[in-house]
Each structure stands twice: as C-alpha cells, then as structure tokens.
Write a protein that binds this DNA or RNA. Structure first.
Lengths: 347, 347
DNA sequence: ACGATCTGCTTCAACGATAAAGCACATTGC
DNA sequence: GCAATGTGCTTTATCGTTGAAGCAGATCGT
C-alpha cells in the first residue's frame, strides 16, 4: 500500500487518453466551452471526477499569468507582530475572503536577507501572488512605496497619509484617541494625564499621541511631561510607570496607546499599592482580547481588526478584477468599550 | 505614470538579450554552472541584479515539479481554531522555519465546499505545496488519512495513535494532565475534583481527561460526577460551573482542559462569591497567554506550541529532502507553571 | 447546387525555466 | 598527428494548461 499512489499525478493528458480526445479538448470541455459536444463534455467531466483530476496550479499560473494566490504581508519579524493577537484577527479576515474567492493565502513575513530584498518584494517579482494585503508597515519603510509602484494590486491596513496613491483601510486613530482621553477628562474628571505612546515610526503611534494631545489642548490641560514613549509591549508599560518613580503621584489618569501597555502599567501601579481606577484611571486601545480578561478589565477603543482585513481583502479582489473605481481610503468607525479601569464598569 | 511599470516583467530572456547569450546560458550562469565561462557568469549576474530579475515561481514550479511552498493546514473553520492563540504560535513556528528554507507558507483553512473536497485535498492534488503541517485534526476526520496516504509529505502536530504511519510531534497530554491533577491532590490536599474536559472528538480532549482520571484512581478518589464536557471556549467553562448550581459545594478543585475554560470557571466562581484559590483550586492547560494575565493568574501546563510547530516544520523539510530515516513520533516535554489559581503563587 | 455558416474536434504555440544533449573550437596526450 | 578531453556556449525538449487558429464534415440559405 505504501508507495503506490504517490507518483500518479493526474493531468489533462490522462483524461484525454482515457476519453480518446486531445488534452486541449479536455481543457475546453472542463471549461464549459460550447464548441465541445454535449456528450464529450459529460464523458470528460465524469472521467475527471473519477480520476480525481485537479489542475496543476503551477501550469495554470504560468499559462494564465496569475498565481491564484494573494499574500498577506507583515513587514517585520514574525515575533514582533505575530506576538500581538492583532495578526490573528487580520489573518482570519483575509483568510475567509480568500477562501470565498477560491484563492490561496500566502503569508509573507521576514525580510529575505539572502538577497537583500524584502520577502514581499520577492513575492511580488516572482509573481507568486496576484495581490497583497499589507499591514503593520512602518512610516519610513521604503520598500512599501516600491511595492505600490510595482503595479501589484495592494491594499494596506492602516493609515498612510504620506502615500497618496495607496489604497488603505483604517480607523481614525487620532479621533478615537482624543475621544477616549476626553472620556477620562469629562466623565471622570481626570486632569493630570500621562500618555504612554506606541512606537512613533508607525503612523498609529503618532496619531494616537496626537489625539491625546488634541484632547489636552481642547480642555486647556498641561502638556508638560504628558508623554512617555513605549513600544507596545507589556513590559514597556511597566517600565514607563516604574521609571517615573514617585512622580507618578503627579498623575491621575493614564492613556496607553494599546492594551498591553495599559496592562503593564496597571500591574506596576498595583505593585506600588496604587489602585486602578480609584487612584488613577487607566485606558488602553485595541481590544484584541487582553482588555476583557484582566482585573480590572481595561476600558479601551475597540479596533475591528478582522473587519479591517476582510474589507481590505474584498477591495483587493475588486482591484484584481479590474474595478479601479472604488474608494481609495476607507475609514471604519470604532467605539469605546467602557470597562473597569477608568472607573465606569462594575467592580 | 499609471500603467508604465506594470507589464515589464523580467525574464531570463531579457537578461539573455542584454548580455547576448541564450536564456539557457543565463539559467546555467545563475545556477553557478562551471561550464559557463567566468566572465559570462559575472556579466549575467550583474545584468540580473540590475534588471531586478526574480525567477517566475510558476515556471519553476512547473519545470521542477515542486512548488517551493509548504502548507499549514487547519481542518476546521477559521473562526473555531484561529480563535485560540494556539494557532498564532504555530504559525510563528512554521513561518520562521519556512523562511529559513526560503520557502513560502500557504495557509489552508476552510473546506472547499465547491468541489466536495477539503481545501487541503486541493492543495495536495494541485501540487501547490510540497508538504504540509497539519494541526488540530479531529480523531475521526477521514480526509486526514487520505492526505497521509497521498504521498504528500505531512507532519502532524498532536497525537494520532490511530494513524500508525503518521509522523507526529506532540506532548504527552495524558501524563501532563495527570501531573497537574496530582499537584492539586498532593500539594494542595484537594480531593473533590471536577474536570471540565475539552471536545472529545480530538485526541487531546480524550488524553487530558484520561490523565485526570489516572490521577484520581492513583489516589483513590471518587470519579462520580467528576467530569463535565466543555468545548474549550471560555463560556463553556462558565456554563460548566453555573449548570452545577449549588452542587459546586461538592468540589474543592477544578481541572480544566484549557486555560480559557479555567478562566470562564473562575469568573463564574467569583460571581458566586467563591474565592479562588481559597475555596477552590483551579488549574488550566496550554499557557498560550491568557493564564498569565488574569487575576488570579492561572496555574497551568505550558504547551510550547511554537516549538512544536518549528520541530514539525524542520522534520517536514527533512522528509521533503528525502531523509526518511528520522523519528516518526516525537514527544516534547512540558512543565507545570505554578501561579495563583491553585494556591501556589503570591497573591 | 454551391458557397456560407455551424459543429466538433485537432493542431499549434506559448507561458518561463531548466537539464540533457549537441556542436564547434581549443588544448592535451602519447 | 590524430584521437581524446576540455571549454563555452546553443539547441532542443519538457513541465501542464490554454486559447487561437485550423480543418474536416454536416447543414443551411437562396
């Protein structure tokens, strides 16, 4: 039983030989071409089913000049971004849309240091994907621009104001950040606020910081010492607080650029004997899972990552189908999720 | 500016024309064939670099009869399994190994209802992947057997005792489950234990349940009413407890088959005014992230999913390279992570 | 009744890369 | 001095699929 089945790879020729026509006729029959007789068509289809014929994706790709594949590109090391459940949601969104279109999903992650090209440049040049969803790109990543200019259909998740031709789906980070900051100010009367920002080489980090500052200015609050730069990791949230030493007493509210840092901050505050939300209100951003399960649960902005990905994917398929008339920038609404860490939810 | 760059796809012919040799010579030059003169080789390589040549993956795949791709197959709906961060870790492990081997990673998820074949059967028959990592397969999934018999190199993550020829990497769920149960018994003196099991159509669910029962029997404890079947979701952990009503008083320890259910159970216990770990000790399984961040943090078995995936991937590459002499079943060690929910960690 | 259209296939070329075989010409061995 | 070997390419065939073009024989229109 062992090796038998292995080599027998069914091609058009096998069907052709069995039915007694040419491979080309089989191809046309399977494609439903009406120039092939009704009878032949049926016989061919039966034979194909019986032999378990599946077209060779390589031959098809070569002949038709498209791969039947889209790529999900994450231009950082796997450990960095995969570590955030964000990616899982994106994958889920892209995957389901790809499946609906009967297209394979390729995951492209690490830089391909072997050839000095980014992995996704290879994907693009080798035509192993017909289009790409790009996410988590840094502002200054020069390869992104080349990717877009290459003519490969690309839809990006996030905001890229410096790339005017890019097709993007994102949320209004700045408005959302302002909104959650104002919640702390107007609902909870917090006036001495600290922002733990994300990495500022990503647009998201900049926008969330700016939204925070917008809120401060709108309410005439002090911007002095209001910002500490983090890196989106839980430990950077912890460090942000511990580095403050006793100056933490100057603050009564913390706006973190994501939930991981909010959680890190809360942990550190707790260990210093400070209660959240009694002594300080803390809020996060993202709501990818963590914010719901911690104690206190974290008030945050819900970012619908899966929906971002599925919308991006749908748009990508439109573009690949030649429909270039749709939107180029799409912003989907987000909402606050009020939980315990600001003082809203039941304790 | 629009359409210009698009069509210019660089092939061997372009390099050949520029250098003044045939495409075949270029191919050989790039492959480092010594029958091509030193000078020509250098000129060709320079031209290739300058033009930005990247081989067509489709043409290569067709000619060489292999795709340059491995598939990560998850034979369930995306929402079910992707929902667990397990998949993220597996992806990370597989992805990094694939990258090291300069091979693309294909994600195959949903059944392809269009043709009545599982998506991965198409992957296999269409030869769009040279090998596959298969995870989260149900015990009775008949397509798994066909996949293995097809001759496509496959390495599975998990244990599949009913598939004697399968190459698998897993952990000893039964021993680990027994071990964490015994921790509750011997260290914390818990004697009235409840197991919230996983789905029993997966080997993991069965093994973890059996390990729990092993511990009970070894210590002469009562098996009556000791098992409730859950489905690995947080809510099934909650339901398992709430459905018990006041009979929860009969128990002093809960062994959940994963952390999500443990967390659900703890939440429900809390809301009933029961303290964990004072009134009851609770433990989970997996340690994929959740267990560390809850309050109380959850004592659990750390399952190194990423390592499982990378070991599986390495073995897959060995097999694809023709080395069939390695192990067929590999079990990697796991360890308990003692935290607060059993009564061990600092509160 | 005889060119025009239809029907049902076959033939052919191509997608891009590659390995085997071939073919000149130069060099070497004895 | 002439076969044997080496060098540096070119020619050719192939992977599996597909669409255009070709080609018989039947059917139709007037």
């Amino acid at each position: 039983m062992a090796v038998r089945a292995k080599s027998t790879r069914v091609t058009l020729r096998d069907i052709a030989d069995r039915v007694g026509v040419t491979p080309s006729a089989v191809s046309q029959a399977l494609a439903g071409n009406t120039r092939i007789g009704e009878d032949t068509r049926r016989v061919v289809r039966d034979a194909a089913k019986e032999l378990g014929y599946v077209p060779s994706s390589a031959a098809r790709a070569l002949r038709n000049q498209h791969a039947g594949t889209i790529a999900l590109i994450v231009p950082t090391t796997a450990t960095h971004v995969f570590g955030h459940s964000y990616f899982m949601l994106v994958l889920e969104g892209a995957s389901s849309v790809a499946n609906q279109h009967d297209v394979q999903l390729l995951i492209s992650t690490n830089p391909d240091n072997d050839h000095g090209l980014a992995a996704y440049e290879r994907v693009m040049r080798s035509h192993s994907a017909d289009g790409a969803i790009l996410t988590s790109a840094a502002i200054d990543d020069p390869t992104v621009e080349r990717l877009i200019d290459s003519g490969l259909p690309v839809v990006m998740i996030g905001n890229f104001p410096h790339l005017p031709t890019a097709i993007t789906v994102g949320i209004d980070d700045r408005a959302a950040s302002r909104s959650i900051t104002e919640h702390l100010i107007t609902t909870h009367g917090r006036t001495r606020l600290l922002h733990i920002s994300g990495t500022l080489d990503h647009q998201t980090g900049v926008d969330r910081r700016d939204g925070f500052l917008d809120a401060l200015r709108a309410h005439g609050l002090d911007e002095e010492g209001a910002i500490v730069e983090g890196d989106l990791s839980e430990s950077s949230g912890t460090t942000a607080i511990s580095a403050l030493g006793r100056r933490i007493g100057d603050y009564d509210g913390i706006v973190a650029a994501n939930d991981d840092m909010a959680h890190g901050a809360i942990t550190e505050l707790k260990s210093q004997g400070l209660n959240v939300p009694t002594h300080l209100s803390v809020v996060g951003f993202d709501d990818f899972g963590l914010a719901r399960v911690t104690t206190p649960s974290i008030t945050t902005v819900h970012v619908p990552a899966q929906r971002l990905a599925s919308i991006a994917s749908e748009r990508l398929f439109e573009i690949m189908a030649g429909n270039d008339t749709g939107w180029h920038r799409h912003t989907i609404d987000v909402h606050l999720v009020l939980r315990q860490s600001c003082g809203c939810g039941p304790l």
